[in-house]
């Protein structure tokens, strides 16, 4: 990553969306002097993981996930967390003016040179796709020369087939501690054995599994 950014805006719908795909890269940006603002659209209040055995319930989950998110931000070095107050699972149904308006306000305020979000249509969860689509709509409406770079995470099965390989691959092995701490911070979500593995992973296994992060730079039509 030769480009250094002063201000980065992360726009994601769920607390924990940053952990696997972007926390290492963000930690690198922070290390390089960037100020990172994380706009998290929801509190993940519809999440189904509640710990095993469950230590959260539908009522307590949002507050628990907010604390997890704060801990994750701390692990990454993000000091500016904005909660946009939307409801989990409902992003795709929101009035576009409301959604776009909030994102647009943040861009006007912060003037980021880089936005990190999900690639619309290739991010599996409807909230992910709808969030990425809103970011793309807002940035596309800006004058071409004022637009920040938009880097997207994507993980749908047909991603590479449809939109090609990621153009930005970040080696985050030097910041693996930040990344693992970010993942572990979300303890209600990621203690499920299928995600973290039953056995403690060796350093090598951790590097193989979490050492690289991939982004697709969104290409606007004009």
């Amino acid at each position: 990553m030769t480009h250094t950014h002063k201000q980065i805006l992360v726009v994601l719908p769920h607390p924990d969306d940053e952990a696997f795909g972007a926390s290492g890269s963000l930690a690198i940006h922070v290390y390089n002097g960037a100020k990172v603002t994380y706009a998290c659209l929801t509190l993940g209040q519809m999440g189904r993981n509640m710990g095993v055995p469950p230590f959260a319930n539908r009522v307590t989950l949002p507050a628990i996930r907010l604390e997890e998110l704060k801990a994750s931000c701390k692990a990454i070095g993000i000091e500016d967390l904005r909660l946009l107050g939307f409801h989990d699972k409902m992003i795709e149904f929101e009035e576009p003016q409301l959604l776009d308006g909030k994102i647009s306000e943040l861009i006007q305020e912060l003037r980021p040179s880089l936005i990190i979000t999900f690639y619309p249509g290739y991010s599996v969860h409807p909230d992910h796709d709808a969030t990425g689509a809103a970011v793309v709509r807002v940035v596309a409406a800006m004058p071409k020369e004022e637009r920040p770079i938009v880097q997207c995470m994507a993980f749908a099965k047909n991603t590479v087939e449809d939109i090609g390989r990621p153009d930005t691959i970040v080696d985050v092995r030097g910041f693996l501690k930040n990344k693992i701490d970010s993942i572990r911070a979300h303890r209600s979500q990621f203690q499920a054995p299928e995600l973290m593995g039953k056995n403690k992973l060796s350093d090598k296994e951790l590097e193989d599994r979490f050492g690289m992060e991939r982004f697709w730079t969104y290409r606007f039509n004009d």
């Binding site: 699972k89 795709e92 149904f93 409807p126």
Partner: peptide, 18 residues
């Protein structure tokens, strides 16, 4: 929303139907 099967979200004053 969706391409079928479809999803519907209805926004009420204080909550949602999904």
């Amino acid at each position: 929303s969706g391409e079928g099967p479809y999803r519907i979200g209805l926004k009420m004053e204080l909550g949602w139907i999904y």
